[in-house]
Structure formats: structure tokens, C-alpha cells
Design a protein around this nucleic acid. Structure first.
Lengths: 191, 191
DNA sequence: CTAGAATGCGGACCGCCGGTCCGCTTCAAT
DNA sequence: ATTGAAGCGGACCGGCGGTCCGCATTCTAG
């Protein structure tokens, strides 16, 4: 009983919804104001269809973010330096953090919508666990292995979407500065 | 035109609401499930009264947190070491971070409710600005003054309520361990 | 003490939103 | 062409934050 392939209209509608949602989230400053009704309308699709395809609001947002981060995830899971497992750990930690913050800078609105999404805390999400794992691995080769998971949490806390948003928008810091300071921050934590 | 003093019944109701809300937030795991109707009912007060006294949901939660943090704020604004301005900066940074995390550990549910509160990002709140200022001052005496505000943001990110909640509840780390690791973290960032 | 005005009270009510339901349509395997 | 399953869509539901306004309570001036 492998899941049978989706019907053609279902696939088409799913795509339409994703595209519409992408535009709406990009346009609207406050993610909470992008309603499911609005997405359905913009996609030219019924509301029921939307929920059938993505289960709930969080599911939709997650699908959007997933699509954007596929390429990045592949690079981290591969071997190639500087992000892959073959990279020397000092460089890898810095590269991971930089890739993460760059991704969030490029997808501010979307990630923001995800992180302040509904009930489930971001920490239980597969994405968080996955990043946490990658960072922990890298840190473990650098210092006290007991400390690695904790440090990984701290790195992820440093690039929380709403913090990044605040630094760029409210404080007007240019992305380059943020990336630079974070890099030096990571280095200063290394033994 | 100084604001005239509040009527006696108003004061009484305000107090009743705060007490009721405190209990409800303490009891309920998920802050979002504490409704304004529930608070009003538990306080034996009309809904309109609640909103008159606190403006909106965020206002109520903020009032709760404020009341709890008064004592702490006084210690930070005073001169006495280790939290006051007279303390040597190395110790002050550590003390501030430790006081903050201790406060959040002691008031998990409440602070959690506050930080994931409505629209306004936590960063614009007076409380965040105030802590950020105190930490920035301390850091400025330690290293590159240009870097101090950024470091202050990082410290605050490290003690975000939902992260603390995750570390204690999901990962089961004892408070003492968290405080200890954070202290060493702060020290390792100092020049 | 009284009387009038100011302030506050409370719960019915509103608008909005996420999510469900179900009769009807479309697809695709035969 | 047939047919049953998969999908569609929009009316509908429940619950929430927030408002409104006729009535009650408190304060103050005389």
C-alpha cells in the first residue's frame, strides 16, 4: 500500500496554491494577515482544496519553506566543503551559521511566518532538529562533546528569524554586517 | 491634568483579574488556551472590565510580568553589586545573564505567554529595550564598544523563553546545568 | 446627608479566521 | 463509454479578541 500518485488536477492546484501563497507572504508585512481564504482566492481554488493539500496553515507554510531550502539541505548533507561533512570543523561551523543566516535574510517573511506559526514550538519541528544535529556534529569535533548540543542551540538562537528581522528592519543593519559579526561571534566561541 | 486616582472598585477588580490570570496561566500548559473570557469568569468580572483595565490581551500579560519583575529591575537599576552599576563589568555581565535566566526559569509559563504574544515583536517592547540597554552598558566596558549592542542581542537570544522551556521540559536539563553553561558561555565571549 | 455627575460595570454582540462537511464534478483505469 | 474513487469548493461552524451601551456604583460639592 504505497501512496498512489496524486491526480493531475490535485498536483496542479497544489502548485497554484504554493505560488499564490509565496506572493502573498512576500507582499504582506505581517504574516498573520495572510489568511487561508486569501490564499485560496488568489490561487483560484476552494478553501477545502487548500486544507486537503496541506492539512493546516502551518503545513502550507512549512511546504513553502521546504521548497526553498532543498538546495541548501543537499549541500549540507553532501561531503563537499565548506558545508559538507568533509570540511574541517572550524570552517564548517562558520559556514553552516553563515548559510543559515543568509537563508533567513533571503527569506525573511516566510521564515518569520513559520517560526511564529501556530501552537507547536519551533524546537520540535524536523527542520530545527536537523539543523541542530548538523551543528552539533560540527561542534563535537571542536571541543567538549558534552557542550556541543548546547552550543548548537545557542547558534540557532542567534539567527532566530525575528531577531534577524529586527536587526535589518528596525536597526537598519546591512546584511553584510550581520553576517560578519556572526562569523566573528562563532569564531570567538571556538577553543 | 494629572490622571486622577482610580475608583476603589476599579482597583479591586484589577487586582482580582491579575490574581485570576496568574492562576490560569500557571495551570495551563499552552498559553494560547487561556482566553480572556476565562480570565473574566475566574475573576468574577465582566469582560468589558477586563479590557478597560488592560486594553488588550498583551496588556494583561505584560502587567503580570511587570509585577513579578519589579524587584529584579530595582536591583539592576541600583548600584549594589553584582547586578548594580557599581559592579565590575565582567561580573556584571554574568550576573545579569544569570538573573535573567533565573527569572525566566521561575516564571516560564508567564514569560512564554508574553514572548509569543500578539502582533508586536518582543524587540519593540520596553522590557526588551531596557534589558538590552543594561547589557549593552556592561559590554561596552569590556571590549569593542561597536560590538556591545550586538552582543547584548545575542545574550538575550540565548535566554529566549521558548528555548529555556525546551531545554527544561523537552530535554529535561536541570536549571542548575542551564545556568552553569550560560555562565561559561558568557565568560567565553569576553576578551 | 443629598443629589448630580463622572466613572466604571458586564454581558450581549460583532467581525474574523481556521477548519470541517458534503453534494457535485473530474479524473483515469478498464 | 462506464464507473467508482479521488478531488473540488464554498456554505457553514465554533471560538476568540475586542466593542458597545444601558445600568449600577462611587465620588464630590454643597
Amino acid at each position: 500500500m504505497p501512496p498512489r500518485k496524486p491526480r493531475s488536477d490535485a498536483a496542479r492546484n497544489r502548485e497554484a496554491a504554493l505560488t499564490a501563497a509565496e506572493t502573498l507572504f512576500a507582499r504582506e508585512e505581517d504574516a498573520a494577515r495572510v489568511t487561508m481564504d486569501a490564499v485560496a482566492a488568489a490561487a483560484g481554488v476552494g478553501k477545502g482544496t487548500l486544507f486537503r493539500a496541506f492539512t493546516d496553515r502551518d503545513g502550507l507554510i512549512l511546504a513553502l519553506v521546504d521548497r526553498r531550502s532543498d538546495a541548501l539541505r543537499a549541500r549540507v548533507e553532501g561531503d563537499e566543503p565548506p558545508l559538507g561533512r568533509a570540511a574541517p570543523p572550524r570552517e564548517r561551523v562558520v559556514a553552516l551559521l553563515d548559510a543559515l543566516v543568509t537563508f533567513k535574510l533571503d527569506n525573511r517573511r516566510l521564515v518569520l511566518a513559520l517560526e511564529q506559526g501556530g501552537a507547536a514550538s519551533p524546537f520540535r519541528s524536523p527542520a530545527y532538529g536537523w539543523w541542530h544535529g548538523a551543528l552539533t556534529d560540527a561542534w563535537r569535533e571542536l571541543g567538549d562533546p558534552d557542550d556541543a548540543p548546547f552550543l548548537a542551540h545557542l547558534m540557532l538562537a542567534a539567527v532566530r528569524a525575528d531577531l534577524i528581522e529586527h536587526l535589518t528592519t528596525a536597526e537598519g543593519r546591512p546584511p553584510a554586517e550581520i553576517r560578519d559579526r556572526l562569523t566573528r561571534y562563532a569564531r570567538s566561541l571556538m577553543p
